[in-house]
Write a protein that binds this DNA or RNA. Sequence first.
DNA 1: CGTGATATCCCCAAAAATAGGGACAACGCT
DNA 2: AGCGTTGTCCCTATTTTTGGGGATATCACG
Lengths: 207, 207
Amino acid sequence: MITKIRLLIVDDHLLIRLGLVTIFSDQPDITVVGEASSGRMAAELFAKTRPDVVLLDLKMPGLSGVETIKLLQEQSAAVCVVVLTTLDQEEEIFRALEAGAQGYLLKDMRKEDLVEAIRAVHRGERWIAPLAGARLAERLVRKELSDRELEIVKLLVHGKSNKEIASALSLSEDTIKWHMKNLLEKLGTHDRTQAAVIAIQRGIVKI
Amino acid sequence: MITKIRLLIVDDHLLIRLGLVTIFSDQPDITVVGEASSGRMAAELFAKTRPDVVLLDLKMPGLSGVETIKLLQEQSAAVCVVVLTTLDQEEEIFRALEAGAQGYLLKDMRKEDLVEAIRAVHRGERWIAPLAGARLAERLVRKELSDRELEIVKLLVHGKSNKEIASALSLSEDTIKWHMKNLLEKLGTHDRTQAAVIAIQRGIVKI
DNA sequence: CGTGATATCCCCAAAAATAGGGACAACGCT
DNA sequence: AGCGTTGTCCCTATTTTTGGGGATATCACG
């Protein structure tokens, strides 16, 4: 091993950062060149340390994980990002990959998988945690929501009736009904309450 | 300091365990006597190591945090438990305290607060993270759901209609309507979809 | 130029929300 | 022991909301 993989850790939780540093300090081929607790700090440290790989928590206060990825890409189009998160926000998996993440790890993974993922993305490969991959596969067979439907499902989750949604969006109630019909079908249910629950589960709407 | 505080760490996430161990290894008055990754393992290690304080993640696969607290209390009624978790499951705060937790910490806390909380509960005090405390205060001004209402709201979240709920609980649809009316009022809404969302937010129903 | 997303209108049956009414058992409190 | 409270249950109404159908026009995009 001639040069070590230079790793930047970004997570707002001190505990997680400490755990990660501990894990990687045992690896002969990886060196942690920086720790950031926010997206802005990540951008600063990225410029300063020029890491090979950025290990990034998706769920952060302030700048979100996806926004952070985009910010880093402005600095270097070739930035290699591995996302680290829990699986509770399914929509975020997709958004992160769309934004350019090379790897997707879950916080309850084994140590070996964590370091192997870093090595894999450094080799230019993708590395997606099996459970996250399963969600992606599900996505492929599912329909995307249109922008309008997205607006409506958000209001739905906030307890608005069709009439209230119509008023909020300056549309007729019938139009809302039409969208709602399609929405229910796309979410695989016949019930608006269930649709709201599914939207929350999938991270389509954040609460 | 004559004797160190003997601490048992229970968390299914390796990363969190590593982070915690790192933090406490810097403290002269605290020694980590064991690490468990599940409730069952916690019970075993508790018997073996007899710690002064147990630092316990609420959200674990298998035995839940609350169940683990109860299991530990069977071994020693005086067990001193500090709960460590995120704030997404509000109901769990209350359940954990009810089950006998002495402290409540959030995973994004500063190092100083973490160790101070351990010391506080070891002195016999309670230590509740400010944000968790705020939720508890909210609870006091809110009405509790009855057992029946709890059953109904669970079925509601799973997309059941009043008729389906009636059938599932062997009640008349009218009775369900009556409960639903009270349920909506207690949850502070006039809309069943919103009620489902609120129930999820508060952790009343797990999804 | 076709396709898809958007928007509007009509209609209809089912479901839900709201409003009355009454009944009974369990509970703590005075 | 009597009292009020609470939770449970049931019934009858009416009105509103929802879910589903079809028909049609616009408008942007490739």
